[in-house]
Amino acid sequence: GVMAFFSMFVAAAPVDEELIIDGEFNMITRTASPEGHPLSEVTSGWLYRTDETRDQQADSFENPGMLAVEEGEVFWNTVDGSAGKSCASCHDDAATSMKGVGAKYPVWDVASSKPINIEQRINLCRIDNMGAQAWEFDEQGQKPLAAYIKNQSLGLPVSMKLDEGDMQKWWEKGKETYYSRMGQLDFSCANCHEQYNGSYIRADHLSQGNANGFPTFRQKQGTLVSLHSRFQGCIRDTRAEIPEAFSDDMMALEVYVTWRGTGLSVETPAVRQ
């Protein structure tokens, strides 16, 4: 009734709590923003979620996203392609070889003269080093393996290198997109995630829209969700045409959005609503 309806606004600001995963990983969920950032503090989406959702992420046995990470480990060890190799053949134990890797992505790829993300880097190794086929967007092992790799950076701060190749230009293109008003509803990413983070759209507590937890377990969809899928979802909600995953515009957006979360701990697999 009326009381339940009003009590929802009691905790309007993001919570003031610490995230320690498995009593071991002290997570950075709030930090001073990088230079040039419009906000003074960068905050993780974790802080905007309900008590139950936040608790799930603090315990790996409760985190529904960890099933995908386990799936990813299986892919890591599975031979595929004409070269008869698995990821493990060249990269051995991911806990060692992949530690810190996920926290730096997306990175500049000299060969293609573009930024690449973890999903594309996986495909590159499949094609170049395994004689296997690239995985389509969100298909087969792409999400679980991306989650597995990023999970090896759990707790480490997001930190991309913008001074490699033309990264800076891509960052600028991503920034342009971030601030463009889109669709019939005429919303920009900045409208919701910069101007109104902390406010509610219906029951959704708007966060800063950071990428540090991706791929993320999304309760609404009951599955692991990739970053480009999330971008597509938000853009769909502006009633604009949905751009293709991994297109140049979407890659530029990933570069810029990832940068906006600089300093936050990698949380993959984050648990979100």
């Binding site: 889109m182 669709g183 019939q184 604009a240």
Partner: peptide, 11 residues
Amino acid sequence: LDVGEDVREDL
């Protein structure tokens, strides 16, 4: 009709 970019085709 003073709306955003790339409006969904059917709209």
